[in-house]
């Protein structure tokens, strides 16, 4: 293991902003924020549908608003392999809905309230994510 590209300060700053969003959503709207929950419930459930849609629109507006106030290039480099995109998208959709949360729901909201369930889920998807990348690098 060699450590590269490590950006601890912007990571902490961005993470804190995400934390503020999670806390405000909790104290103002009474909900524990998890993006997979919001996105999948928007598709499937009638409850809070407009709220959920507005949050998703906000997620897209956030980067756009930020880009108006900065000259730095916002880099998004993503695979162009259709096979990886489609398999990955399906697995993330299936897995987060079945497992009851994603990096934000389990990893921040869940661990933030010391939920054992969320701690175990987060360790599981991180270990599997690391193994997947490890195997991908071998193939």
């Amino acid at each position: 293991m060699v450590i590269i590209n490590f950006t601890p300060l912007t990571a902490l700053a961005g993470g804190s902003i995400i934390g503020i969003s999670v806390f405000l959503f909790f104290i103002l709207n009474g909900r524990r924020l998890g993006v997979s929950g919001i996105a999948s419930n928007f598709l499937i459930s009638k409850n809070n549908r407009i709220d959920n849609l507005l949050f998703l629109i906000g997620l897209i507006l956030g980067p756009l608003i930020y880009s108006f106030f900065t000259n730095e290039k916002i880099e998004i480099s993503i695979t162009s392999s259709l096979f990886l995109l489609i398999t990955g998208g399906l697995l993330v959709g299936l897995g987060t809905r079945i497992g009851g949360g994603c990096t934000s729901g389990h990893g921040i909201s869940g661990i933030g309230q010391f939920s054992l369930r969320s701690i175990i889920a987060t360790i599981t998807f991180m270990v599997i994510g690391i193994l997947t990348v490890f195997i991908k690098n071998i193939i």
């Binding site: 695979t79 990886l84 697995l91 079945i98 193994l131 991908k136």
Partner: peptide
Amino acid sequence: LFGAGWGLV
């Protein structure tokens, strides 16, 4: 399942 999809993309 989620971890695998996350690691792929």
